[in-house]
């Protein structure tokens, strides 16, 4: 992962103080945008904290992308018209923060794809969670990975060890060399509403009362449904 939050800060250094006149800057952006950034923040945190890949937020990403593009165009236009360095730099910081968030979200997903490519390809439910571009990327990644293993290691091994997916073709009936996410890991989460008593295992002898805004460390597997239905958020 690359150092975070840097984008927003770089911009400050570009524009120094000493601004004289203050002019207006009209009609930039649109209404009710706050919620989209807030949504993306939550989606980003969830994606970073969850061990498996989560459904791709296509419409949200599209909306945020449009807003960033619009804002960048506006800034360019205003930069020539109006010479208010302070306002311009604040607008640039805002765009950079949003860009950082979006990039980090997409990068967190790529990171998971690169860790569990074959697992994702093999699993239709996970496969459907990817965007079109991500699916393309995953396919190509798998292809390259297979070629690489073949060339560097597998070709030199005895036949029965020649598969990338099996330990040996004699002893293993199933593909047992595929890296999978550890779903029994523990996550820090916050309930977004009073869920009440919630079962933590199949046998039903472990339950927890999930109260609004309280913080819990829970095993991921039992609460993954709550996450997908937006009942909890990971932090």
């Amino acid at each position: 992962m690359e150092p975070a939050g840097a984008g927003a800060r770089d911009e400050e250094d570009l524009v120094d103080g000493g601004i004289g006149d203050v002019d207006g800057l009209d009609d930039v952006g649109a209404d009710e945008l706050r919620s989209d950034v807030d949504l993306l923040l939550r989606v980003w945190q969830n994606e970073k904290c969850a061990p498996e890949i989560l459904p791709y937020e296509a419409t949200l990403v599209e909306r945020v992308r449009e807003q960033i593009q619009l804002m960048e165009e506006n800034i360019e236009a205003f930069a020539t018209e109006i010479k208010d360095d302070l306002m311009l730099s604040l607008y640039r910081m805002d765009v950079n923060r949003t860009l950082f968030l979006l990039r980090s979200y997409l990068r967190a997903r790529l990171h998971k794809i690169e860790r569990f490519p074959i697992h994702i390809v093999d699993n239709p439910e996970l496969w459907d969670r990817l965007s079109e571009h991500e699916q393309e990327y995953t396919n190509k990644y798998c292809e390259i990975l297979a070629k690489h293993f073949e060339k560097t290691v597998l070709i030199r091994l005895p036949d029965q060890y020649g598969s990338m997916l099996k330990q040996t073709s004699l002893a293993s009936e199933e593909n047992d060399m595929i890296t999978q996410p550890q779903l029994n890991t523990f996550v820090f989460c916050r309930s977004r509403g009073a869920i009440g008593s919630f079962q933590l295992d199949d046998k039903g002898d472990e339950a927890v009362d999930l109260m609004t805004d309280d913080l819990y460390i829970l095993r991921y597997k039992p609460v993954r449904k709550l996450l997908v239905t937006d009942k909890i958020e990971l932090i």
Partner: peptide, 26 residues
Amino acid sequence: MAARSSSDAESALFSGAEVEFLAEDD
């Protein structure tokens, strides 16, 4: 036994800068 990765603490972790980034929205 299927190969399982242990959870990757590094990737799940927010860097100090990222935590600060979140705080800057307060």
